[in-house]
Design a binder for these strands. Structure first.
Lengths: 202, 202
DNA sequence: AGCTTTCTGTACCCGCCAGTACATTCGTTA
DNA sequence: TAACGAATGTACTGGCGGGTACAGAAAGCT
């Protein structure tokens, strides 16, 4: 499924180069508006290599891009994303999110963009992206659960609901970031989300 | 620009039929994946009529769809959207939003979907959609301002920032609604947003 | 009625793009 | 060096989709 043909070091490097460049192109122009020829031109390769490394065609490539971007985005939030156990950690996490999306050349979230573009399509892509979203959201929920267990949050707090709300605020902020070409919506969204979190303080 | 040629009643009806059906198709499948032939098939017309009523081609049609959907969405939130002066009005508004998006055949928000799909393109569409978003957000800000003026919210409340955060939560909830095929994310997002609003109560 | 304008349907053109076929070069192993 | 598979490059195909041209039906106006 992934790559039954063996990859030489050179091949692996080329594959990685394709994924990285394609990720940027797709982020800037969307899946539908990025052709395989564009990706070939952007990487100094051609359709030969593309179908050599991704025999499944554009679909397989897009799935690889989703994986790559998900990893990239989650890594940018570490180590705080894994240890949302204190109020300070949440602030730090907020700052790391702002810093990451502020340093991108383009506005918006790669995962969110893919999610909204592919949600109406076959489950093959939609479920894949949804799984990444679930994983991401799971980190928030785990942090909230630990906060509740440690007594920082009230007993009647529903971690699932609260994580969902915070996650939604985050992605809404990123969506508005795209349309308004400013980081302010994301900042306001995260501030609001943390205010909602604090409203459950013990 | 709009339609210099005069429209007979029959023509106006056909045009409206096209817009309505096209709006549903585009909402379900996205702009990029909806062809003019699809729209023709969905309305019992052909490209002849399409280019007759929208001489500017697909771009002009999409702009008409954006206007139509924006009106539809805002109307669904009335009359509470115009009178967000009391805590109860905000609750009612929340309920009307949930009811509207819960009654749709498809998940997600028409405006949000267009926004994320067209944001990277020429300003022609991006600015159009952004303007609708701004108008919508303006209603929230106006309500917050009146709440502050009436003493329900603290003096140090920033209506712009708070409206931005609530608006972001709303759209994030709608985005997750799309990927998770459930109304829960929207509910959680709005609950969180109202909690953030209440945290500014005087 | 007769003319004009709008409305509707059909057939076509052209460019783009995913995918294919195949030739060629490179690298590794024997 | 011979040989094999991986890596790369190029040329082609088939369908799809936006857009155009144009012919016929319908409806307003005098």
């Amino acid at each position: 499924m992934t790559s039954s043909t063996t990859l030489t070091p050179k091949g692996a490097a080329t594959r990685a180069r394709i994924v990285q460049a394609a990720a940027d192109l797709v982020l800037a122009r969307g899946v539908g508006r990025t052709s395989l020829d564009d990706i070939g031109a952007g990487t100094g390769t051609g359709k030969g290599q593309l179908f050599h490394y991704f025999p499944g065609g554009k679909g397989e490539l897009v799935r690889a891009l989703a994986d790559f971007q998900a990893e990239r985005v989650l890594d940018a939030q570490r180590p705080w994303l894994d240890t949302l156990d204190t109020w300070q950690a949440w602030e730090r996490w907020r700052d790391s999110v702002l810093a990451h999306y502020g340093s991108q050349r383009h506005w918006g979230c790669p995962i969110g963009a893919l999610a909204s573009e592919l949600s109406g399509r076959d489950p093959s892509h939609g479920a894949e992206v949804a799984a990444h979203m679930d994983r991401w959201r799971g980190y928030l929920r785990a942090g909230i659960e630990r906060m509740r267990a440690s007594g920082a949050l009230r007993e009647d707090t529903d971690p699932e609901q609260l994580a969902l709300g915070i996650f939604a605020a985050l992605h809404g902020g990123l969506l508005l970031t795209q349309t308004m070409h400013s980081l302010e919506p994301l900042r306001a969204a995260l501030d609001g989300a943390l205010a909602a979190l604090r409203s459950h303080a013990a």
